[in-house]
Structure formats: structure tokens, C-alpha cells
Design a protein around this nucleic acid. Structure first.
Lengths: 207, 207
DNA sequence: GCCATAAGTCACTGGTCGGTGATTTATGTC
DNA sequence: GACATAAATCACCGACCAGTGACTTATGGC
């Protein structure tokens, strides 16, 4: 016969399940992915999903343990906190905002988590929010230790990063405003220039 | 007997249904409100919901025809386009951003729609997105006709309004950054000052 | 008081979901 | 080749969902 239905390979099956879960979450969003859908997508009986993982939350944390949801300071800024100390405040702010976008853009799972947090309030999303907030605090601490006066710019950073995040989550929004296509790399390049302008103006204003 | 179960009052029933729908959407989000939930909340058989409205989309449009989802330019700015022509660019930009927040904050249904757009792609949300985008275009036109140089500030306005919107949809986000409680009026008062600072710096930079 | 109308109710279909107990079967070991 | 083990499957449960056809009954007009 062409192929055994039962491959009897635990590790391979687990991998199939995890990959299917990741695909589905990236495509449909966290809030509409359930055990049934995962099992279907993986071509596997749902009992196996329960056996090997336990449930959707465990699937997510298994995936997150392979590829962390949130980028590190180094990934975002392009250098560690020590190296960042040599940069100007403007440069750090610019790199922070654009780096954030760059890193999140290659993490569809993280974007799905952000969307889910906006829309669903359950033990899983609450836990996820907590983790993300802790990460944001850490980022801010790093910024401070790199010499950025956090007190004065924290709320500004909140608005700007929230804005970029929102455009990231909802590309259609920007069409109406800027006519910039944020689904394309070129669109984001242009958006980076805008960020540069904003940051420059704000920093000049403070000092 | 205490009361007839059947009140036999079509208009009253329709009103009950609409109100129940509005309550549920504001509380649970558009994407998790179905016919069954509406009927339960209204204390009415679901057949009546189908009879009087037809489905969830029609419920939403019935509600929106009573209270428009998106505020007018006058509501946002506090004066019509003619009056706005007398204001400085800084003042218009400030009023636009803070007015947007003020008006949307009192429209829980609109916030629910924005959330749904982020998370669900179906005929209903697509139609809703289209309507909202058209509204945004109109707003931008009004701004232009009030003397604001739209070309140069459109992308900036996109980022800033998207940011405020995101904070509106996700109050927990701001905690980590600014320590500002955006569920309270005071928090938003503080946020307005931040907006003032940003707008002033940016306008100063342009001119 | 009669009765047509329409407001409201009941009961059902077919489907999906999360979750679980019992069973089959491929595989490596001896 | 027999057999214990565990990988995988099957079959089911109760709950919820959207949607529909058939029914009951309150009400206003006569």
C-alpha cells in the first residue's frame, strides 16, 4: 500500500501538530483556532493533540518556547544596551520604533496574539497580556539604561508605538490616510521616513 | 395573573431586541454576538429577531441608523469647516486628534466595530471597513478644506490617530508605558496634554 | 361574540465544538 | 513468531449554534 496511515512516530506527529497550529493561528487568528481545527489541519486525531499537549494554551507556549513571541532589545535596536549608549537619543528612538515594526512583521504569531488580546478576555489572553506588559517594561528599562530620559518620552513612545502597532494589525487603515500600502516593504520604508521626521521634531523640541 | 408573557407589541419588542443587541455588542464584542444570545438577552424568541430584522448585519445597520457609528467633522472639531478655517493648524490638529478620542469613547458600539474589523474578515466587517474608510477620507478632505496641508501631515495623522485608537481599544497597553490609566477621564486628560506637546513640536518643525 | 391577522411560541434539523473512554494496531524486544 | 507497549483510531457525550416550519393565542375590527 502506498503509505501507512499510522506513522507511529511520536516526535513527527508532535511537530506536525505544532506546525499546523502555527499556520492556523497566523492565518485565522488565535481566537478561532480550536482543537478540532488543529487536528484537522495536521491530519491527526484530536485525541493526540490532547495527549501530547493538553490544550490550546499549551500549544501556544510550546510554540513560543521555540520562537519567542517578543523580540529582545538587541534584536530591536541592533546592538546591546552598552552599544546603544553611544547612540544619540534620536537614533535610539528611531531604531526602537522601526525595529519594533521590523521584528513584529516577521512574527505573524505575535501579531495574532496582539489581536487576540484586543478582542478576547480569558485566562489565556490575560496571561499573554501580562507577559507582553512585562516585556514592554523591560524594553523601557533598557531604553533608560541606554540614556534615554524615559519619564518625558514614555507617553509619547506609547502613542507612537501603539500607532505603528495598530497599522501593523490593520493595514487597511493607512490606505485612507496616507495612501501608503503597508502590506508592502516599500510602504514600510516610506513609513520609516515619517517616523524619522516625527522623532527628529520631537527630540529637537525637548532639548 | 401577574403579567402576560406575550405582550403583543411589535414596536416594543423590536426596541427590546435592538437594545439587547447594543448591550451585548458593547459588552462582548461584535464577533461573539449571535442570534441566540440576542434573543436570550432580550427575553424574546429568536424567531422574532429573524422576522423583524433578518440577521446580525441588519441589526447592526438598524442600530447605526439611529446613532451613526462615526462622528461628523463638526462633532470632532467642535465647529464646522468654515469656522475651522479661522483656527491655526496646530489647533485644528489638536482638536482633531483629541476630538476623535472624545467622540469614540462615548460610542462603545463603534469601538466594538473597530475591534471586529481587526479580527474578523467576513462580508459584514468588510462592508464596515469600507464605510469607515470612506468616513476617514471625508474627514481628511474636511481638514484640507480647513487649510491643513494634508499631503505633508497625512501619514503623521495616520500614525497618531492609529495610536490613540489603539490605546482606546486596549487600555492595558498604556499602563506599561506611561503609567497612565486610560480607563479614567483623568488619564485621558493627561494624554491630551501629550498630544498637545506632540502636535506643537511637529507643527513647529514643519513651518 | 366571531374571526382573520399577526405576535409570539414550540420543536426540530443539521452542524460544530470541546472533551473522554474504549479499542485497534504498528513496532521493537525477546 | 509471540507479546507488551504505546501510537493512533473510533465512537460517543452534552452543549451550543444558525436557521426554519408548524403551531398557539392575543388583539382589533366588525
Amino acid at each position: 500500500m502506498a503509505k501507512n496511515r499510522q506513522s507511529r512516530d511520536k516526535e513527527a506527529t508532535q511537530k506536525k501538530i505544532l506546525q499546523a497550529f502555527g499556520r492556523l493561528v497566523a492565518r485565522d487568528g488565535l481566537h478561532r483556532v480550536g482543537i478540532n481545527a488543529v487536528a484537522r489541519e495536521a491530519g491527526v486525531d484530536k485525541v493526540l493533540v490532547y495527549r501530547y499537549f493538553g490544550g490550546v494554551p499549551q500549544l501556544l507556549s510550546a510554540l513560543a518556547s521555540q520562537h519567542p513571541l517578543w523580540p529582545s532589545f538587541e534584536e530591536v535596536i541592533g546592538t546591546n544596551a552598552l552599544g546603544a549608549a553611544d547612540l544619540s537619543a534620536e537614533e535610539i528612538a528611531f531604531r526602537f520604533l522601526t525595529g519594533l515594526v521590523r521584528e513584529l512583521r516577521r512574527r505573524p504569531l505575535s501579531l495574532a496574539v496582539l489581536r487576540a488580546e484586543l478582542v478576547e478576555k480569558n485566562p489565556l489572553t490575560i496571561e499573554l497580556s501580562r507577559a507582553r506588559e512585562k516585556w514592554a517594561e523591560d524594553m523601557l528599562e533598557y531604553l533608560e539604561s541606554a540614556g534615554v530620559p524615559a519619564d518625558s518620552i514614555a507617553p509619547v513612545a506609547a502613542i507612537l508605538s501603539a500607532g505603528l502597532l495598530h497599522l501593523l494589525l490593520n493595514p487597511s487603515l493607512s490606505d485612507a490616510f496616507g495612501g501608503v500600502d503597508l502590506k508592502s516593504d516599500d510602504g514600510w520604508k516610506k513609513m520609516e521616513e515619517v517616523v524619522r521626521r516625527i522623532v527628529r521634531a520631537l527630540i529637537r523640541d525637548i532639548s
